[in-house]
Structures are given as C-alpha cells and as structure tokens.
Design a protein around this nucleic acid. Sequence first.
DNA 1: TTAATTACCTATTGACATAGTAGGTAAAAG
DNA 2: CTTTTACCTACTATGTCAATAGGTAATTAA
Lengths: 134, 134
Amino acid sequence: MISTKGRYAIRVLIDLAENDNGGYIPLKDIAARQEISKKYLEIIVKDLVEAGFIVGASGKGGGYKLCRKPKDYIIGEVIELMEGPLCSVACLAGEENDCPRKGSCRTLPMWEEYDKMVHDFFYGKKLSDLIKKK
Amino acid sequence: MISTKGRYAIRVLIDLAENDNGGYIPLKDIAARQEISKKYLEIIVKDLVEAGFIVGASGKGGGYKLCRKPKDYIIGEVIELMEGPLCSVACLAGEENDCPRKGSCRTLPMWEEYDKMVHDFFYGKKLSDLIKKK
DNA sequence: TTAATTACCTATTGACATAGTAGGTAAAAG
DNA sequence: CTTTTACCTACTATGTCAATAGGTAATTAA
C-alpha cells in the first residue's frame, strides 16, 4: 500500500504544476485546494525541499514552487523518497541479499520479477502525465 | 511490501507440493525444512485450512496436505487471503470508492492502472509455476 | 488403555509504522 | 514593526507485524 505521505507528495507536485504562476505558492493554498491538513503537509514538503524537488521561500509572498519541468519529475522517485525503496519483500530491501536460502528459494525469482515490473511502472510515469494540460 | 504471512503461506504450499507422498505432512517437518517457527506457522496454516486451500488431520500420522493440483492454486488468491486485497491506495480498498475527489482526482487513474497490473501479475502465477518439476 | 503425536485454540507481547497534532522560532516583505 | 510565510522539535494515539506462551482436543500405535 502506498501511504498518505507518498500520495500527498504527488498531489502537492501536481498542485504546484497546475497552479504555477512563476512565483511561490503558499502551503495554505495547497492545503485548502487539496483538502489536506497544512500541518501534515509541512512534513511532506520538508522532505520534498530537502530532496531538491521543490524550493521554498519564507516571508510574505513566500511559499513553494517547482524547480524542474513537470516532464522531469519521475513519480517513482517521489514515491521512493517518501516511502523508501519500492520493494516487495524484505530480502530484496537492503544493498545485498544475504538470505541463506537465496540459492534454493523457489519464490525469489517471482519477487524479483514483480519488483522489476513495479519499478518500471512508476519510473515510466512522469508528473507531466498526471497534470491537466494547460 | 508482502509480509511474512503471505510469503510463508506460499512456502508452505510449495513445501506440501514438493514433499507430497499422498499422506499428511506434519507441520513440524515443514517448519524444520523451511526454517520457520512452528508456532508462527500454526497461525498461517489455520488460515489456509479455513479458506479450503489445505486440509489438516489431527493425531498420530496427521498433518496437512493439499486438496487441489498445484496448477489450481492461484498465488494472488493466497496473498489476498493472508494480506487482504491487493490494493495500492486506501480509496480503492473498500467495496466502492466514496472519495469526494474521485471525479477530479489526477492520480486515481494511475492507481487503478497499477492495481490492475499487480492483480494480473499475481493471478497469472500458479503454485505449479513455483515448484521444482518432479 | 495409555502414551505419544499431532492439530487446534485463546491470549499476550515488543517493536515499529502510520497519520497525524501542538507549539514554537526564523525569515522576508509591505 | 506587523503580517505572512516557511521551518523546527517534540509528542501521541492507533494499528499492524511478527511472533511467543500455554494450553486443549483428536487420533493412532503399543
């Protein structure tokens, strides 16, 4: 299951893209449009800023804005930022699979095939695929 | 992420298929071969019995055995039994989607496409695809 | 008939993640 | 110098995960 953090992060990016006017967009406005608690969104945009997906500006006239073109945001990267690696089973999560059953595991190939499918799906989706054409 | 319950359930079915001798196989043996706590497996086989995937027999000479051919076990059904519906987001989980943003949601189509892909993947996998050919 | 073996049952636990809330400080613009 | 905004740390309630604990009931073999 994709959690609210991942889903809300995508919705924030969509909101920023669709309401882009060249300037900064206050979080208050995003929260109102998306009907999500502003307090909770603060946690999410913080991660997006730290990852370099958006930029924030304090003070009056401040807010957030995108720093790339919508085409250059990969949805899979956003999800992995908010939720950790797209991975179906614990033995494929770390850097290397150190499961002692690895060699004889009947199910491992299925999980690997599944993970590849999921990865390809979300890395093939761009923010530009989700916004309403202007 | 697929939890241990789902993964272990599949491994139990594989174990029963690969060690099938016509009779019942004690859980103790499965636990030893799979290196999983017997106590924990009790929870899992209970669900499998209740769902009609396997049958159990008490007493000496008892244990568990499959009640279908490996070809007739759909992996997706096993996973959904152990983990609940294969569903990526909360708004697609229940019987009907009552989200008020449904009509205008930019992301819903992506989640629906994703869920369909995942469903097709696991409903296309059979137990017979996972066992070592005898 | 009794001992061994096995499934089956209810309850409990520690650790962690999720989905937030609360109450502040710092920065920038008018 | 006041308003607006981002940014920061901490806290909390609820639920899920991954088991463990300690039994009872059923069945078979000696």
